[in-house]
Amino acid sequence: MRSKTGQVSIMIVCLIVGIMIAVQFRTTETYYNELTRESRLEDLTLKLNSITEERDSLAREVVALREKISSMENSGQSKELQEELRKTNMAAGLLPVQGPGIIVTLDDSTRNLQPGENPNHLLVHDLDILTIVNEMRSSGAEAISVNGERLTATSEIRCAGTTILVNYNKVAPPFVIKAIGDPEMLESGLSIKGGYIESLKLIYGMEVQMQKSDRIEIPAYKGSLRTKHLSPVEAKNNKKKVE
């Protein structure tokens, strides 16, 4: 029965099957793309973890090598030079140091949010840490670290999105700020009436704890020294300028 209607129906059905297969193709294709995107995410996470580990181990190596260098330099040089080098390294943050001082622990407020209040007010910000560090310095702190990051002459404390960066490393609450110096002086400088820490506690309800200690250890700066644009001023030029 080779009828015209038979041909037409076969053609129509073929058309429908073609459409179905094409739609199916496209759907599975996008579906698989999504699957591969997910596996890519896992890939990147793994990579990030391994790179972070590598960075940490390299940072440890830098500190160890620096110690080695300073011990090598120490041998075979005059006592005064050794002492000078040691002092400079300590002040520059290249040597781990210890001494009496104060530990300030800073954490986000646990107070309930008032209606209409900005939730940002209850979080510790980069400016809070910066101000506390500044007050520590003005009270005679000789070495400061924030969550184990030694503050050097080039260290920054800044906000990057939702995290705070110190020495280009992320730090997270609770923030432990250690300072070596005269403990009494540091404490009275920080807890002065109407001072910054008091206002943090009273107005925003931040968790601030101060603890004096006879022995605080502050690690060395783990990053690299970047002196791209620096060069010492020649002695001659210096004289001329003074004249």
């Binding site: 073929c14 058309l15 094409a22």
Partner: peptide, 24 residues
């Protein structure tokens, strides 16, 4: 039949319809 099938494929690739992933 093959001709119609190919036309169907072309239409299907042009039509902006995607099936929900659950029913694939």
């Amino acid at each position: 039949g093959l001709f119609c099938f190919i036309i169907g494929l072309i239409i299907g690739f042009q039509v902006p319809i995607l099936l929900p992933a659950v029913y694939v």
